[in-house]
C-alpha cells in the first residue's frame, strides 16, 4: 500500500495541479470573502453564503437562457449579461436574507442568528433542489467552449497525441483575471473609499458608527450585497470551469470556502484570499494523490490542525475567544 502510494506520488503532475489548484482556489477565495466580510461586520457566520454561490450558478444559466430566447444566442453578450443577471439576483437574495433572517436578531445571543442562518441555507438549498431539480445540469458548452483553447503550453508532452501537455487555458486565465480584478476592487473599496471606512467603522463599534451619522443598516446590507455579488461571480466561473451545476454545490463549496476563511483568519480579508488559494491547491493535490473520495477528510483534518496550532488563522490578529 505504502509502495503504491509513493509510486503515485512520483507521477504527480505537480505543475498542472498547482495551476488547477490556484484557479479553483481563487474561486473559493471569492466565496470566502463573503463569509469573512459578514463575519467582520456582524461577528456572525452567514451560512447561507454558500447557497448564494449556488444560486449565482443557476441564475447565470437562467439569465443566458432568457436572453437567448429573447434575441438569440450571442455568446459574448449573453454570457456577460448573464453574469450581470446573476449578480443582481444573488444580491437580491443576499439582501433579502439579511432583511428577513438576520436584522431582527442582530443584538441577540450568538445562537439565534447562527440557527437562523442554518435555517435559511436549508431553505435556499431545498428550494433550488425542489424547483430546479435534483439532477446535475451541464453548463451550456456553447458559451464555455470559446474559452477552451490553450494560451500557453508550459510542458510539452507527446507531440503526436498531445497527451501530457501542461498549459493554461483561456478559461483559467479569465478566472484568474476576474478574481484578481474583483479582489483588487474590493481592497480599494475597503481601504480607500468612504463606504469602506463606514464598513470598518461599523465592524468596530456599531452604536458609535450610528452616532457619527453612518446609516448602519444600509452599510450592513451593502456588505451582504457585496459578499453575495462576489459569490455569484464565483458561481458563474465555477460552473463554467467544472461544467456542472448542482443544488448541493453550495454546501460543498461553501464548507471549503468557510474552511479557507478560518485558515486565513476569519474577519481578515487577505487571509480569506490566502486561505482560498491554499484550500484549492491542497484539494487538487489530494485528489491526484489519494483520490477524490478523500478530499473532505483531508479538509477536515486541515481545519482541525489549524484550530489546534493557530486558532486565529494564518493572518488573523483578533483573539478568537470572546473578549
Amino acid at each position: 500500500m505504502l509502495e503504491s502510494f509513493i509510486k503515485s506520488l512520483a507521477g504527480v503532475p505537480w505543475l498542472e495541479l498547482l495551476i488547477t489548484g490556484t484557479v479553483k482556489g481563487s474561486m473559493y477565495a471569492l466565496i470566502a470573502l463573503g463569509y469573512t466580510m459578514v463575519y467582520g461586520i456582524l461577528q456572525m457566520i452567514n451560512f447561507a453564503n454558500g447557497e448564494i454561490f449556488m444560486i449565482g450558478m443557476f441564475a447565470t444559466v437562467f439569465g443566458i437562457a432568457l436572453l437567448s430566447s429573447l434575441w438569440g444566442s450571442f455568446a459574448a453578450i449573453n454570457l456577460i449579461l448573464g453574469v450581470v443577471f446573476a449578480v443582481i439576483l444573488a444580491s437580491a437574495y443576499g439582501y433579502g436574507s439579511e432583511r428577513i433572517a438576520y436584522r431582527r436578531l442582530r443584538n441577540a445571543h450568538i445562537l439565534a442568528p447562527l440557527t437562523s442562518a442554518i435555517g435559511l441555507s436549508i431553505v435556499l438549498q431545498q428550494f433550488i433542489s425542489n424547483v430546479v431539480g435534483n439532477q446535475p445540469f451541464t453548463f451550456p458548452n456553447y458559451y464555455s467552449d470559446p474559452f477552451a483553447w490553450r494560451v500557453v503550453t508550459l510542458v510539452q508532452g507527446n507531440p503526436a497525441t498531445g497527451a501530457g501537455d501542461v498549459g493554461i487555458s483561456m478559461l483559467q486565465v479569465c478566472i484568474l483575471t476576474t478574481a484578481c480584478l474583483l479582489m483588487t476592487a474590493l481592497f480599494y473599496m475597503i481601504h480607500c473609499t468612504r463606504v469602506g471606512i463606514a464598513m470598518r467603522a461599523v465592524s468596530q463599534d456599531r452604536l458609535m458608527a450610528s452616532l457619527v451619522g453612518i446609516p448602519v443598516n444600509h452599510v450592513i446590507a451593502f456588505t451582504f450585497i457585496v459578499g453575495s455579488s462576489l459569490a455569484a461571480v464565483a458561481g458563474t466561473l465555477f460552473s463554467m470551469y467544472t461544467t456542472t451545476l448542482t443544488w448541493s454545490a453550495g454546501t460543498a463549496s461553501g464548507l471549503k470556502a468557510f474552511t479557507a476563511a478560518i485558515i486565513g483568519g476569519i474577519g481578515n480579508i487577505p487571509g480569506a484570499v490566502l486561505g482560498g488559494l491554499l484550500i484549492g491547491i491542497i484539494e487538487d493535490f489530494t485528489i491526484a494523490i489519494l483520490g477524490a473520495q478523500w478530499r473532505n477528510v483531508i479538509l477536515f483534518a486541515i481545519l482541525m490542525l489549524t484550530l489546534i496550532l493557530r486558532p486565529r488563522g494564518l493572518l488573523g490578529e483578533r483573539v478568537a475567544d470572546k473578549v
Binding site: I197, R200, A201, Q204, M208, A209, L211, V212, G213, I214
Partner: peptide, 30 residues
C-alpha cells in the same frame, strides 16, 4: 444626526483600528 444634532458620547469611542484621518472622515459620511 442628519437633522443636525450630534452626540459625542461618554468614553470617547474612537474606532480603534481606523487611522485618525479615517476616524475624522467617518464623521462626514453622506
Amino acid at each position: 444626526l442628519r437633522q443636525g444634532i450630534c452626540l459625542c458620547p461618554e468614553g470617547r469611542h474612537i474606532f480603534p483600528r481606523l487611522t485618525v484621518k479615517e476616524n475624522l472622515l467617518s464623521g462626514s459620511y453622506l
